Amino acid sequence: LADDRTLLMAGVSHDLRTPLTRIRLATEMMSEQDGYLAESINKDIEECNAIIEQFIDYLR
């Protein structure tokens, strides 16, 4: 059971955070005209990261 939990934490961490990191990188490359959009996307990314952290904390 502990091994399954560790594997799940690693999978969640990698499989969800990697795309979020790519999205954040894309927002950094957006033009200044789209700053409001990038800010909104980054806020959503932070919310997703917080949910992931809560899930990982729960698994521990």
Score class of each variant (00 low, 15 high):
Leu25Cys: 03
Ile56Glu: 00
Ser40His: 10
Arg22Glu: 00
Asp57Met: 08
Cys48Lys: 03
Leu1Ser: 11
Asn49Glu: 14
Gly11Ser: 12
Ile23Pro: 03
Val12Thr: 08
Arg5Gly: 07
Pro19His: 09
Tyr36Ala: 03
Asp3Gln: 05
Gln54Glu: 04
Cys48Thr: 07
Leu16Phe: 02
Ala26Tyr: 05
Arg22Phe: 13
Leu8Pro: 08
Gln33Gly: 06
Glu28Val: 13
Leu20Asp: 03
Lys43Arg: 10
Arg17Cys: 10
Asp15Ala: 02
Met29Ile: 05
Gln54Met: 11
Ala2Val: 07
Glu28Gln: 14
Tyr36Ser: 03
Tyr36Asp: 04
Cys48Phe: 02
Met29Gly: 04
Ile41Gly: 01
Ala10Pro: 00
Leu1Lys: 00
Gly35Gln: 06
Gly11Asp: 09
Tyr58Lys: 09
Ala38Pro: 08
Glu53Thr: 00
Asp44Glu: 01
Gly35Ile: 07
Arg24Asn: 09
Ile51Asn: 03
Asn49Ser: 09
Arg5His: 07
Met30His: 11
Pro19Met: 15
Pro19Gly: 00
Asp34Gln: 12
Ile23Leu: 02
Pro19Leu: 12
Cys48Tyr: 01
Val12Pro: 01
Ala38Thr: 05
Arg5Ile: 09
Met9Val: 15
Met9Tyr: 02
Asp4Ile: 12
Ile45Thr: 06
Gln54Thr: 04
Ile45Arg: 05
Phe55Val: 05
Ala50Arg: 14
Arg24Phe: 10
Ser31Arg: 08
Leu7Gln: 05
Glu47Asn: 14
Gly35Glu: 07
Gly11Ile: 15
Thr27Pro: 10
Asp4Thr: 10
Asp3Ala: 04
Thr6His: 04
Glu46Gly: 09
Gly35Lys: 08
Asn42His: 09
Asp4Glu: 08
Cys48Ile: 03
Thr21Lys: 14
Tyr36Cys: 04
Leu59Lys: 08
Thr27Asn: 10
Asp15Glu: 03
Arg5Ala: 12
Leu20Thr: 13
Glu53Asn: 13
Ser31Met: 07
Cys48Asn: 14
Arg24Tyr: 02
Gly11Thr: 13
Asp34Val: 11
Glu28Lys: 15
Leu1Val: 12
Asn49Ile: 02
Tyr58Asp: 12
Met9His: 04
Tyr36Asn: 14
Ile56Tyr: 04
Asp44Cys: 03
Ile23Val: 02
Leu1Trp: 11
Arg17Asn: 02
Gly35Pro: 07
Glu39Asp: 12
Asp15Cys: 01
Asn49Asp: 14
Asp44Thr: 05
Cys48Val: 09
Glu39Val: 10
Tyr58Arg: 09
Thr6Cys: 08
Leu7Trp: 05
Glu46Arg: 12
Tyr58Val: 10
Leu16Gly: 04
Phe55Trp: 13
Met30Val: 15
Ile52Pro: 13
Leu8Ala: 05
Asp4Ala: 12
Leu25Phe: 08
Leu16Arg: 10
Arg60Ala: 02
Asp4Gln: 11
Ile45Gln: 09
Glu46Asp: 08
Ile51Pro: 04
Ser13Asn: 11
Leu8Thr: 05
Glu28Asp: 07
Gln33Arg: 06
Thr18Val: 12
Pro19Arg: 10
Arg5Ser: 10
Cys48Trp: 13
Gly11Arg: 13
